[in-house]
Every structure is written in C-alpha cells, then in structure tokens.
Design a protein around this nucleic acid. Sequence first.
DNA 1: AGTGTTTACGGCGACCGTAAATATG
DNA 2: CATATTTACGGTCGCCGTAAACACT
Lengths: 86, 86
Amino acid sequence: MSLRQLEYFVAVAEEGHVGRAARRCYVSQPPMSRQIRALEDELGASLFDRIPQGMKLSAAGQRFMGYARDVLAAADRAREALREDD
Amino acid sequence: MSLRQLEYFVAVAEEGHVGRAARRCYVSQPPMSRQIRALEDELGASLFDRIPQGMKLSAAGQRFMGYARDVLAAADRAREALREDD
DNA sequence: AGTGTTTACGGCGACCGTAAATATG
DNA sequence: CATATTTACGGTCGCCGTAAACACT
C-alpha cells in the first residue's frame, strides 16, 4: 500500500472513471488501472464494482474511503509541519 | 514521501543508529541511509544530526516525528478497516 | 583499529506508455 | 461501433546488496 495508490483510489472513486482519474493525476489509464488492481490484491478486497460506464465504489470501497482520506490528510499535515521554518 | 520512508525515519529515530534500524527493518544500511537522505531532500529539511555515535533527531525531526507516526497509524487503521469482513 | 555513515556500482525488479485485446450497450 | 477497462510488451528508472570509501575517537 503506497500513498500513490491511495491518491489513485480516491481519484477513481471521485471521478467514477479510470480514464478521467488518470487525466486528473497526469498519468495514462494502464498505470492507474494496475495500481488500483494491485491495491485491491494487497488488501484482499475488491474496492470497486466494474460497470460498463466506469467504476463504482463497492461496500468495502466505501468503508475504505474515509480511512484513505485520513492517511492522505495526515501526509499533507506532515509535509506542512516542516514548512513552518520561515 | 513514501510510507516506507516514514517507517524508516521512525525506526532510525527510535534506534538512534542507521545500522540497528536497518536490521530491525530487515534491510541493509545503504538503502536505509539513502531513503532517509531522500526524505530529507524532498522535505527540504535535515531531520537528523549526524553524530559519531549515530544519528540524533534534529529540531525539525522532532517536530516531524509526531506527524510521521500519525500517517503510519492512519495507514494501519486503513488496512484493518477491510479485515472486518468476517 | 573500531564504530559509525555514506558513495560506487552491477544487477534485478517495478513502473510507465503505446498498442492491442476484451467486454458491454 | 463507441466507450470503458484490462493485458502485452518493450524500455527506462529506481532500488537493493556487496564492497569500498569516508569521518570520528
């Protein structure tokens, strides 16, 4: 589980499309798709339901979302903690 | 900034030695040393004072520590959030 | 000399992007 | 056939570990 995977997960969940999420993260679809798959494999849970229109959060995905955002927010706070050196 | 770098950072801070931290994390010293350096470079702050006996947290490092632990704790909670599928 | 960190360097593995394949309406 | 995700695949970049170098007492 990497911070990048969590960023991708949140992007896909918010956009509902791998394609749009990929553009938003300045990456092409295949890496985005692979990272999501790798995250699901590692966690042993499918986070999305694949539907023809894109991807929709599964029940497990919805439960995971809040925790993923917490990690990313904590990481942002950590980075900013060192910017207070002015 | 990666989760692994934060784990290494906490390990070095707690052990006070790159060598001991490396053994604790089942890695050799050079990767440990490089990851710490890379983290410092990215954050633009030196997190440790290099002393002959090892490494000691700098003022910035002490300030960073709490935030680093928060990120790792949040990551653990995220992982466990999906284990409740029994 | 001995304890510690860091740099060189060869080799393996991860990851990206283009393009092709697969699936659904 | 249009839109979506996924797999193949070639190439690059990162990262590891051994060994050597460097710093301090």
